[in-house]
C-alpha cells in the first residue's frame, strides 16, 4: 500500500493487487497496545493507511484478485490476473512484490500443546481476542486469567524446525501486549520467558525499563521445555529452568501465550516460481537484480515490524521511480 501511495503521489500510476477481500494484510488485524500512553505498536498506522488508500483518488485497487501469469521482459511485463469477475491482462513497467508473511504455525511446536490445550494461545490469538472481543479471558471457561506466561521465540531462532533466524518483531510485540494487559487488568501478573531481548530503537530503552520496574511483570531468561495439562482442572504447568533459583522449576499459569515468529506465506512459492525469485538463507525472498524491474518490499524480504516495513516500502518506492526514470 505504501509503495502504491508514494508512487501515485509522484505521478506514477499504480495498480494494487490484493488476494484477500480487504486491504491491510496482517498489520491491519492488530489491536492497539496503548497503556497509559501510546506504546508505538503502529497498529493504528496500518488502519490509517488503508483509509488513505481507499480515499485517495489515483490508485486502482483490485481485491480478491490473483496473479496467474507473467509474460514479457524487464520494463514491459504483461501480467495476467484472475478474480471473481473474470480474467484480464495488463501491461506494466515494473512490479513490486509485497506479499507479506504469516505467523508461524504454533502447533508444530508440539511440546507447548497449541491446538490441544485451550488455554495455550498464540500472541496473534490474544491480539484478536483483544481486538474483536474487547477483553482478556481464558478460552476454556471465560474467566480472567490471574497469571499469563509469554513464551518467546516460538518458531524463531530454532533449528529444530528449520527457522534459524530472529523474527525481530515478537519481543516488542509481546512486551507491548503485556503492557496493555497490565494496564487494563492490573490484577493479572505476567511472565516473559525469553532468550535475548531483541528490539532496539529510539524509545525502546525507556519502554523496557518501565517493564522492568513493573512488579507484575517478570522477565525470565529461560525458554520453557514443556507444558503439562491437567484435564480435570484445565490447569497448565510450565517446566522451565528458573535462573533465579538455579533449578528446574514447574509453575502453574492460567494462560499461556506463544510469541509466534514470522514465516513467508505458504502461497509465496507460486509467486516465486512465476517471477523466478530466489530465496535467501532464511527462506524469505531475495531481491532480484535491479534491471529486472521486479522489486521486493516489506516483511516478505525478511522479518520486519510495521514501522520498518513502511520505511522499507518508501525506500523501494524511491528505487522504483529511479528505475522508471532511467528507462524513459
Amino acid at each position: 500500500m505504501t509503495v502504491a501511495k508514494e508512487l501515485a503521489q509522484s505521478g506514477v500510476s499504480a495498480l494494487l493487487i490484493e488476494r484477500d477481500p480487504s486491504l491491510g494484510g496482517l498489520a491491519a488485524s492488530f489491536c492497539c497496545k496503548a497503556s497509559e500512553s501510546c506504546n508505538k505498536c503502529f497498529a493504528c498506522v496500518a488502519d490509517k493507511r488503508v483509509l488513505e488508500i481507499r480515499n485517495g483518488p489515483s490508485i486502482s485497487i483490485l481485491t480478491q484478485t490473483e496473479l496467474t501469469g507473467l509474460k514479457g521482459g524487464p520494463g514491459a511485463y504483461n501480467v495476467s490476473l484472475k478474480n471473481g469477475k473474470g480474467r484480464m491482462d495488463i501491461d506494466v513497467s515494473a512490479i513490486v512484490i509485497a506479499a507479506g508473511v504469516d505467523p508461524f504455525d504454533a502447533s508444530l511446536k508440539a511440546e507447548y500443546g497449541y491446538g490441544r490445550y485451550k488455554n495455550v494461545i498464540t500472541a496473534r490469538d490474544l491480539d484478536e481476542m483483544l481486538r474483536l472481543r474487547g477483553k482478556l479471558f481464558c478460552p476454556s471457561d471465560g474467566r480472567l486469567p490471574k497469571t499469563v506466561a509469554f513464551f518467546q521465540c516460538v518458531g524463531s531462532r530454532d533449528e529444530s524446525i528449520g527457522n534459524l533466524y530472529c523474527s525481530q518483531v515478537c519481543c516488542a510485540y509481546a512486551l507491548r501486549l503485556i503492557k496493555a494487559i497490565r494496564y487494563q487488568y492490573p490484577e493479572t501478573k505476567a511472565a516473559f520467558l525469553y532468550m535475548d531481548i531483541q528490539p532496539a530503537g529510539a524509545s525502546f530503552d525507556q519502554f523496557l525499563n518501565s517493564c522492568r520496574q513493573d512488579k507484575g511483570i517478570r522477565l525470565i531468561r529461560s525458554l520453557p521445555s514443556k507444558v503439562y495439562h491437567s484435564p480435570l482442572s484445565d490447569g497448565l504447568r510450565v517446566r522451565f529452568v528458573d535462573p533465579l533459583k538455579g533449578e528446574v522449576a514447574e509453575e502453574p499459569f492460567d494462560l499461556i501465550v506463544l510469541s509466534v515468529g514470522l514465516v513467508l506465506r505458504k502461497d509465496s512459492k507460486s509467486l516465486a516460481r512465476l517471477f523466478n525469485l530466489n530465496f535467501n538463507e532464511e527462506g524469505f525472498f531475495a531481491p532480484p537484480p535491479a534491471q529486472t524491474g521486479v522489486f521486493i518490499t516489506g516483511a516478505c524480504s525478511g522479518p520486519k515490524d510495521i514501522d520498518r516495513s513502511i520505511i522499507h516500502a518508501k525506500s523501494i518506492a524511491c528505487t522504483v521511480q529511479q528505475y522508471l526514470k532511467g528507462r524513459s
Binding site: 531462532r157 533449528e159 534459524l164 533466524y165 530472529c166 523474527s167 525481530q168 519481543c171 535475548d196 531481548i197 531483541q198 528490539p199 532496539a200 531468561r221 535462573p243 535467501n280 538463507e281 532464511e282 525478511g302 522479518p303
Partner: peptide
Amino acid sequence: DLKVSSDGMERLYRRARERGALFIKFE
C-alpha cells in the same frame, strides 16, 4: 542480551558458536 534481530544475524551467531566463541550472558 545479544541482539540478533537483523537479517542473517542468527546464522552468524550460530557460526561463531560453532567455531568455538564463548557467549556469556550476564545479569
